Amino acid sequence: NITNLCPFDEVFNATRFASVYAWNRKRISNCVADYSVLYNFAPFFAFKCYGVSPTKLNDLCFTNVYADSFVIRGNEVSQIAPGQTGNIADYNYKLPDDFTGCVIAWNSNKLDSKVGGNYNYLYRLFRKSNLKPFERDISTEIYQAGNKPCNGVAGFNCYFPLRSYGFRPTYGVGHQPYRVVVLSFELLHAPATVCGPKKST
């Protein structure tokens, strides 16, 4: 009989979020998941679920829940969905086509923008091939755009693969920082350890 609540607040209220190319993952297990707390949290810009209804989450049990978190621009949030393409979905964070879970995003301009620009948040701009679902690539190898080998030196046709967002408070909404948490639900042939409040007695 599990009684402790799942530590969703640790994920959602973290002081610093990860850059999207180096997205953070927390495994959540052996706890009671009260999703209504999240669902009623006012400032969400997006709360979209795939393969599961957000209002039914509290009735369900899962083997594991993974909480992935990172920061992207407002106009990139739409790429955090199954079957998407674009710089983020291709080179930074890719969801599987059969994704079961929820994508939760909110504007973090007050936290993550600075006058003069916040350059701490990076994304991958160049990559030889697209990421596989949930693949994480933190390499900083110089990207070779031409035929000539770069030998690890940036220059003509040789690019550092990461780019900084440089968030400023005055940017338009599409270019403002958004914090994103992706909850993915794993249902294995194993005992369920993460259940909603109704199922955990």
Score class of each variant (00 low, 15 high):
G117H: 09
A46K: 15
A105V: 08
A105D: 00
V180G: 00
G174D: 15
F47K: 04
F126G: 15
N30R: 06
P161D: 06
V71Q: 01
L183F: 05
S53T: 11
R179E: 03
V173E: 15
R163G: 12
P177Q: 02
F45I: 10
H175V: 07
Y35M: 15
D68L: 01
Y91H: 08
T3V: 07
F160Q: 15
A154S: 15
G172V: 12
G83A: 07
W23A: 04
W106L: 05
K94M: 01
C31K: 06
G101R: 00
A145T: 12
E10K: 10
D68W: 03
V194E: 11
A14E: 07
N13I: 00
Y35W: 15
T15E: 11
R136L: 06
A89E: 01
Q144I: 06
K94H: 07
V52Y: 05
C158Y: 05
A105K: 03
L188F: 11
C31Q: 06
F47N: 01
G86Q: 02
S200C: 12
A33M: 12
N120D: 14
V194S: 11
R16A: 11
V103L: 02
L57T: 04
L188V: 14
P191F: 05
Y50Q: 03
K148S: 12
F41S: 10
C158H: 06
T140G: 11
F45V: 14
A33I: 14
R127N: 05
F70C: 00
A67H: 01
K26C: 06
P133R: 01
P197V: 15
Y159C: 12
P169E: 10
D112Y: 00
P82A: 01
F17I: 03
T100P: 00
T63K: 13
G166Q: 13
N4A: 12
F70K: 02
Y159A: 11
F156I: 13
Y159H: 15
P197G: 13
G83Q: 09
K114Y: 10
C195S: 11
V115S: 14
Q79N: 04
S164G: 12
D112R: 00
G172I: 12
S129D: 14
C102R: 00
R16D: 12
K114G: 11
N75M: 09
R25I: 01
N87T: 14
T85P: 05
V32P: 03
V77E: 04
A192C: 10
A46P: 03
T100E: 05
Y91S: 05
D9M: 15
K128E: 12
P161R: 02
G174K: 11
N30C: 06
S139M: 06
Y123K: 11
Q84F: 03
C102Y: 00
L60Y: 15
A18K: 07
E10W: 03
A154K: 15
G117D: 10
F8E: 03
S164H: 11
N64F: 08
P96S: 06
R168Y: 10
F167C: 02
C31N: 07
R27L: 09
V32K: 09
S29M: 08
V11R: 02
G83R: 10
N1L: 06
F70H: 01
S29P: 07
Y143K: 07
C6G: 05
L187D: 13
I142H: 09
C49R: 00
D59V: 04
N130S: 13
D112S: 00
P82V: 02
Y50K: 01
I2V: 13
F167S: 05
F167H: 04
N118W: 04
